[in-house]
């Protein structure tokens, strides 16, 4: 039990690191392209306009990023970042099931369904 807890911790540590690095790479890459194109325009965030609809939905962000659009690439990196803790929860469900810890597998599943609801539900 103790030993498998330690293995789980090592894998979770690696998962979080990989997720954050991947997100940072996308954000930095998109960011550099963004600055080359828009760097000389005036920065103004004092009035809230909301984002265009393609940057507000997962499918829109994905198609923008695949078309190598700058803001879409950054946004994809940010979505990867949001997905990192969620991936950690998914992994925890399996880890608790492997330990035959049914109570915690259920607890973790409850957290996961709330997260999925927030990200995908109620567009």
């Amino acid at each position: 039990m103790q030993r498998s807890d330690e293995q789980t911790e090592a894998i979770i540590g690696r998962l979080l690191r990989v997720g954050v690095i991947a997100a940072a790479v996308f954000v930095a890459f998109g960011g550099i392209l963004y600055l080359f194109k828009y760097g000389r325009m005036i920065a103004d965030y004092s009035i809230f306009r909301g984002e265009p609809s393609d940057l507000k939905s997962l499918s829109g962000i994905l198609s923008d990023a695949l078309a190598l659009r700058r803001r879409g690439l950054i946004q994809l990196g940010l979505v990867l970042l949001i997905a990192t803790p969620i991936a950690r929860v998914v992994f925890s469900v399996f880890a608790f099931m492997r330990q035959r810890d049914l109570a915690y597998a259920m607890i973790t599943l409850a957290v996961l369904s709330l997260l999925v609801y927030s990200l995908l539900g109620g567009q």
């Binding site: 963004y34 984002e51 940057l55």
Partner: peptide
């Protein structure tokens, strides 16, 4: 809800 702006968040 459009709170996350890529240019600002980067």
């Amino acid at each position: 809800n459009g709170y996350i702006d890529p240019g600002l968040t980067m």
